[in-house]
Design a protein around this nucleic acid. Sequence first.
DNA 1: TGAAATGTTGGGGCG
DNA 2: ACGCCCCAACATTTC
Length: 504
Amino acid sequence: MARGHAKPRTSPGRSKYPVASVQASDTKRYKTALVWFRRDLRIHDHAALHHALREAQSVHCAFVFDTEILDRLPNREDRRVEFIWHAAEELAASLEAWGAPLRVLCGRAREVIPGLARELGAEAVYANHDYEPAAIRRDADVARSLEQSARVLHTYKDQAIFEKDEVLTQAGGPFTVFTPYKRAWLAKLRPFHYTAYPVAKYRASFAAGQCPRRPALEDLGFRRTNLTDMKLPTGMSGAQRLFREFLERIDGYQERRNFPAVRGVSYLSVHLRFGTISIRELVAAAAPMPGPGAETWLSELIWRDFYFGILHHYPHVEGHAFRREFENLGFENDPGHFTAWCEGRTGYPLVDAAMRQLNQSGYMHNRLRMVAASFLVKDLHVDWRLGEAYFAERLNDFDLAANNGGWQWSASTGCDAQPWFRIFNPVTQSEKFDPGGRFIRLYVPELSNIPDAFIHAPWTLPPLEQQAAGFAIGRDYPLPVVDHATARQRTLEIYKSAGGGDEE
DNA sequence: TGAAATGTTGGGGCG
DNA sequence: ACGCCCCAACATTTC
């Protein structure tokens, strides 16, 4: 059957993808269709767009700034809204080059989309699968509304290479351990799974028209952020630039990806999140490429599919520990400690640098996400859900499945999580992965004059040398909020008594 | 995608 | 020369 879990089609022009010839319009099943863009803000290699163009004579496009989401955002300067706004602008410009207008609307998507479909006389709405529980409920609502006026919602796999039940164990169940999942994923992978949808070939099906006025960022009730100052490339073109640059250094990825002060990673996560680049394009480049760099990077892309799958099969992970014995660890959740962590003043330089990077830019290096998460849970004894929520609020690339998976991994509450007795030492991690303190100095300028030998643990700088450096611990930079060795012992007790006792 | 505690080994100082 | 001790370096176990 056709890719993307599309329901079996009966239209006469249906053929096995990819298709060599453009269908004649009299073989199409719909006169008019509407493509609803969501987290897939691009025109190339787009499943829903491709199917709509093939199946309808006249295709309209829309994007909705969903007020149900926007209204719940805690502040009016949100880099993600701005990122999406830029992406929608570029999407509109690209569609316009094909003579197709993009309708950019603002409102409750579950009402706006059925309303727009009625207004346009669209018989079908096309969109890509979104796996978040709230999105699933929204899409079910939209489908129901459309049905009431004899319309239909078609949705497709687009964000993932394999979704839902496509990769299963021998027993037919979902994988809950990454390594065997990855093995099965790789064994199943064929070029077919990462071949781009040739959208441009069918562009004759776009409904022509004037480009309607689009809302400015301010019209949405949001203010500019420092997003553009940060030189974060936005939109499809920004994603392509990052990808091109990353491919130049992918060979060193395996080593360089661990060092936050080094440009080692791809920085594509936010683009994958909003679909300004296609996962198929990335896998198409990485899968056939030899060497440990491409292999390791592909692994990271597989983690993404893995966590989509976990959320799909175990939706209770949203809000609950995957491992029930660790549901309630009885942490103190000291508000002072939590605030110190949020604000980057725990007294542990690498943790603080990481949190300040997040606060200033909306980005945090992946290793630092692990270090910061481990510290919150296993040093400060704050519930992982508080950290998860803070990241959700701040990360430009925030994705429910991946963020939840990452936090439960760090907290040892998840499926295939790190063992509970595995506890990062924030000083050792700092010495290993920021040996010269370059990253620390970037975000914790009050430590810029501390010698390398002490920058990972500035409280060990002898008083005389503090004087010489014009620095006083406790005055210019906080003393550690907790003692790691003590906190570690307590963590071991907590997890052991919570039922971790009989673990290997 | 760990770190700390504990165990083992072997070189060198030294009586 | 030899045994003994110290301890660094490495390995293994434990959390």
